[in-house]
Simulated assay, not measured.
Amino acid sequence: MRPLRRHPLLVPALLCALALLAAGPTAAKGDAGDPGGLSTEVVRLFEEASATTRRYEEGRKEAEVQRARAQRLERLLAREQRNIAALHGDLGRIARAQYRSGGGLPHTAQLLLADSPEELMRGQRAVWQADLAVNNAVTKSRRAEARLTADEAKAAKAWQALERRNARLAEMKQGIEQRLEAAQSTLQGQADASVAAGACRGTVRLDQPEPGFGAAWVAPLETYELSAGFGSGGERWASRHTGQDFAVDIGAPVRSVGEGRVVKVSCGGPFGIEVVVRHPGGYYTQYAHLASVAVGQGERVAAGQWVGQSGTSGNSTGPHLHFEVRLTPYHGSGVDPMGWLAERGVQVD
């Protein structure tokens, strides 16, 4: 619908007044209880845990490759050792054959007992050739055994070093996760206190990611699992679910899906701590059940900019982001957010 023409100076004043009425009670920035340090710490621990997890997974895969190589070399070494044992057996059989054919008699006696000198020479030549071939094979196998022994020891050493490194990374990861869990609990406690008081603790100025998403529209979270969808039924909703839920840990940065202006920051009621952004084209997006807010009312935001941190404030059974797309800033005007994002090139799955 085409908007009505208004006086150019009257429009900003009316928008500001409506935004203030919609926002409800909000504490001023710089409040003494501002959780900025804690919020930043949670984000830092998220990033640190993620980086350590990636290093651990890379090390684990590398260790598996080295272990497989060491086991393969061990099998080749065992096979080479069996070959050497078999060749030694062949040498023993050749020696016994020489003995049975007179190999232990003096050369003159062998000439006297042989049917002919040619027969004697042929028999001895065959035995000598077999003896030489087996000796050569044994020498080659010994060299192969030495190489395999060195390679197997080297691979086993690399594997063991990786295992020790992975054990240290696993210990670091566990320590980070424990600190993160404690910080998340404190952050959510502050959020619950804000909701109970019906007043926000103030805007948390998180260190924003470097711009460069390159897309006009993005998903509201970088990593997540989908839970309750738009229009689904449930005893916690008066009729039908009005948005899309994203299951995510407390403190995960929540992104504005597109550029726009913040028209509401509220810290009370069933949605707990929430932010509403108006986008070009007249649509609004809501980010609810937050643990903190990172933008102020009336502030312009870019696609991908952090507007807050996920939590479980308000009418919530667990940590998640409740995301809505609305035709107005108010509850009850929602449209299917998944379809709306898909129309803008954002696949959420």
Rank of each mutant, 00 (worst) to 15 (best):
A28K: 03
T203M: 09
H241W: 07
G298V: 00
A161I: 13
P280C: 03
V43I: 13
V276Q: 10
H289M: 10
S39C: 08
R100C: 01
V276L: 12
W340Y: 14
L77C: 09
Q309E: 03
A97P: 10
R240V: 01
Q110A: 05
A158K: 15
Y287R: 13
E47C: 04
A126T: 02
P117Q: 04
A228I: 12
L21Q: 10
F323S: 02
E80I: 05
D34V: 02
G229V: 02
M1W: 03
Q286C: 04
F246E: 04
V204M: 00
R69K: 07
V346G: 11
A86W: 07
Q309V: 03
A133M: 05
A144D: 08
F213L: 03
A167T: 14
V127I: 11
E41V: 12
L4F: 04
W237P: 01
R93W: 08
T108G: 06
S227R: 15
R67F: 03
V195K: 01
S316F: 09
T52Y: 01
T203A: 11
G212Q: 06
Q110E: 00
V293T: 13
A150E: 14
E47L: 06
K61E: 15
E64V: 07
I273D: 14
E343A: 05
F230P: 08
A303V: 07
V43S: 10
E41I: 03
F323T: 05
A193N: 07
G103Y: 03
Q110Y: 00
E324N: 01
L18S: 04
S239F: 05
C200Y: 14
E62Q: 15
V276Y: 12
T108A: 10
H88P: 01
G260S: 07
T203Q: 07
R344K: 13
A294Q: 14
W340P: 05
A27F: 06
Y224E: 07
G33N: 07
L290I: 07
R72C: 01
A167W: 06
L132R: 03
G304C: 04
A302T: 04
T40P: 00
A23L: 06
P209K: 03
G332P: 10
F271M: 15
V265S: 13
A252D: 05
N83H: 09
V335M: 09
P117H: 08
P117W: 11
T149K: 09
S116R: 10
N315S: 13
V263E: 02
T242K: 09
T186D: 14
E343Q: 13
A155T: 03
G345I: 11
S101I: 00
G268W: 11
G231N: 14
T40N: 10
Q297P: 06
L45N: 05
A86E: 02
L113M: 06
A78R: 13
K173L: 09
A247R: 11
E163G: 08
H88T: 04
Q66H: 14
R205S: 12
Y287T: 12
P280A: 12
Q160M: 03
E57P: 11
G198K: 02
Q347P: 02
S256K: 02
A291K: 00
H107I: 08
K29M: 00
D192T: 10
F213M: 01
G233R: 15
R201N: 12
A167S: 14
E177A: 05
G123M: 09
P8S: 12
P8T: 12
V248L: 08
L327E: 15
A144Y: 09
P8G: 08
Y330I: 00
R278Y: 10
M1A: 11
